[in-house]
Amino acid sequence: MKHANVFLKIFVHLFLIIMSLLCLLPFVMILSVSLTSETGIQANGYSLIPSEFSLEAYQYIFRNPTEVISAYGTTTFVTVVGTLVSVLIMAMLAYPMSRSDFKLKNGLSFFVYFTMLFSGGLVPMYILVTKYLGLKDNILALFLPILISGWNTMLLRMFMASVPVSLIEAANLEGASEFRIFFTIVIPLSKVGIVTIALFQVLTFWNDWYQAMLYIDHGDMTTLQYMLYRVLNKVNLAKEYGGMMATQEKLPNENLRMALCVVAAGPMLVIFPFFQKYFSKGITVGGVKG
């Protein structure tokens, strides 16, 4: 929207700047703590600018670079493959759900939504994945159990429902199959929705540590988030059991906890703008004839 007046513009920017800063400052704090030496934290507490600059936390993490690099590799693979496969499957599922003339529309939507409400819980899932599918220590176990998201499928359905019916009808009259309509009309027209969902899926796979915790017993296969989780979990357990365990094992330093956080989230900051490229307007009905 152009032509907005100056006061409105100032207000809009002010609002967005304040909101953005609220989100940015904690992250800056994390970055700063991760770059502060442990003695600096003890002496001066947390601060927005490192009180005693030090790379010790990062040196510690990368003292054994193979683990981190392989974790990056695993996480990246899982994220890329998981996202591509899941978005395709979800789009294929969401499109019929978005067609008001499809008889099974409501039934299918309920079928999907129901899985958001009910789950069998951890144990049946674990038995399924390890015993019946035999996926223990298999990289597939890192994304297959969480591949499809009911929530995101419903969102995709919503985006696809806004594809003009007239276009689909026109294609119908020309004798195009539903597959053709799906790939040549619906997908391009719901590009923004698909990219949004793809981004959400990227996050799901990137942020997941639970599958790694459950299904990986052996070997070096680990994900970034699981590395981070292991460290944080030690701290939490020590807190839960109060004084009892604290003296039996040394706890990870605070700068290390924060540095792991940065290492785990960092790449996403690069990936995010890549997706934003597709958040653009200007899709008009005229522009999509296949």
Binding site: T115, G120, G121, P124, M125, I127, I148
Partner: peptide
């Protein structure tokens, strides 16, 4: 991944 485990 949803309905079969749900029986559990």
């Amino acid at each position: 991944f949803s309905y079969i485990p749900m029986a559990g």
